[in-house]
Design a protein around this nucleic acid. Structure first.
Length: 120
DNA sequence: TGTGCTCTGCGTCAACGGTT
DNA sequence: AACCGTTGACGCAGAGCACA
């Protein structure tokens, strides 16, 4: 199969509860093209280690929010990638099974022919 | 060529389960 | 209880396409 992320055996059977796709060491997404949102307060990680201003708790909250948003952004991207790969694997599986089915039907037909000629 | 429709990818939120 | 990762759902923007 030409899919980069190799599916597990359970994935091949088609009855897996979640996407069980082993990640390959592929190139990371083009994150350079993504504008990383900056916090409204203009959070600066360098300043964080030292700042002890009165609004520090607020800054901490917004910094945490920014970090969470950024991580979730990446997570969503990865989740979608995995889902796409999973669907591709399922489609491949369908193709394989359809081929198998066709082969078996032809085999059965041939065997029936042989049987008919023997008994006739 | 402008317009409406569909598809696709993205960011965000919310909910959930697992971990510390 | 707080934190974290995962994922479904939602809305938005841009691309591609058919049609008048």
């Amino acid at each position: 199969m030409a899919v980069t992320g190799e599916e597990t055996e359970s994935a091949a059977t088609g009855d897996m509860p979640t996407y069980q796709i082993i990640r390959s060491s592929q190139a990371p997404p083009p994150s350079s093209a993504i504008a990383i949102a900056t916090s409204p307060g203009g959070m600066n990680l360098h300043a964080l280690g030292h700042a002890h201003s009165p609004q520090q708790p607020t800054e901490d909250v917004s910094r945490k929010r920014e970090v969470r948003l950024m991580k979730n952004r990446e997570a969503a991207r990865e989740c979608r990638r995995k889902k796409k790969e999973y669907v591709k694997c399922l489609e491949n599986r369908v193709a394989v099974l359809e081929n198998q089915n066709k082969t078996l039907i032809e085999e059965l037909k041939a065997l029936k022919d042989i049987y008919c000629h023997k008994t006739a």
